[in-house]
């Protein structure tokens, strides 16, 4: 093939390629908005899923595994009142998202609700942002915020899930060794329990098994023990009122340790 013929065929090829390029550009342009929408949607899901893992690792011991709140430790977040009236209640001028983010960033030095002031202490929530001495990066706090906000549909009753009982499967096998350790580290300062003798002013718990189930009508023994740790003001045994023999229970336990110690003192 002569050079001129070659050039002519190259021109034809160029025209075909340009037409193909135009077609491909049109095709991609037509789908780009859909792709962006899908990518943004998936990214939001990914952000919430990452936030869920962070919540699981850092927040559930105070706010409950499903945001239901834990006694006097932390308020419920999966809660209608939280989504409807919380920012008005505290006079927050920004959005709920800003409020959650700011709270996680800075913590709460002074409680806004006395019930959550926590055993005579005003320091109710630590700062979580790395900049303020916490363990989380700003992007992680954004993930956590997205996860907390995603409870809205549940809190407002728009979706409801069937509860799956998995506690028995996932509870660590209770051993007296583990229960003894948790008791010694967290309770022995105030309470005696059989051979574990305390010099503290709290009641001796050696016979708690016999009385726990009957202290509060309608409440079982395990629930009573947990409540006594989490909401110590709810029922104070006569002779142990605050100010007389010291403060209420000051132990701050993880969910797992609370379960372990409850089983330990009851078994």
């Amino acid at each position: 093939m002569s050079e001129d013929m070659n050039v002519k065929s190259q021109f034809v090829f160029l025209v075909i390629l340009l037409l193909l390029s135009l077609f491909l550009l049109g095709f991609i342009s037509g789908h780009e908005q859909t792709r962006i929408g899908q990518a943004a949607y998936q990214n939001k899901g990914k952000v919430i899923a990452r936030g869920a893992l962070l919540y699981d690792a850092n927040c559930k011991s105070c706010h409950g595994i499903k945001g239901e709140g834990v006694g006097q430790l932390g308020p419920a977040l999966n809660d209608k009142q939280f989504f409807q009236t919380r920012i008005t209640e505290v006079g927050w001028s920004g959005t709920l998202e800003n409020y959650i983010r700011a709270t996680i960033d800075h913590g709460r030095l002074i409680g806004t609700r006395s019930f959550y002031a926590g055993n005579g202490s005003n320091a109710v929530m630590a700062a979580w942002n790395l900049d303020y001495g916490g363990p989380l990066r700003p992007d992680q706090i954004a993930d956590l915020t997205a996860f907390v906000l995603n409870w809205e549909a549940n809190a407002m009753g728009r979706v409801a899930f069937e509860n799956l009982e998995v506690e028995d499967l996932f509870a660590q096998a209770e051993s007296s060794g583990e229960g003894r350790r948790v008791f010694t580290q967290n309770c022995l300062q105030c309470h005696s329990f059989h051979d574990l003798k305390s010099e503290g002013s709290g009641p001796d718990l050696s016979s708690i098994k016999e009385v726990a189930a009957t202290r509060v009508p309608g409440q079982d023994a395990e629930s009573y023990i947990k409540d006594s740790v989490l909401v110590p003001d709810r029922l104070v045994v006569e002779g142990y009122e605050h100010g007389k023999n010291g403060l209420g229970c000051g132990a701050v336990l993880s969910e797992k340790d609370l379960q372990t110690v409850a089983e330990f003192v009851l078994n």
Binding site: Q38, Y41, A49, E152
Partner: peptide
């Protein structure tokens, strides 16, 4: 944690996504 990836299958009941 697994999230819904298909926006067309979204329940659209909440405002989170």
């Amino acid at each position: 944690y697994v999230y819904q990836k298909d926006p067309s299958a979204s329940s659209k009941t909440g405002s989170g996504r």
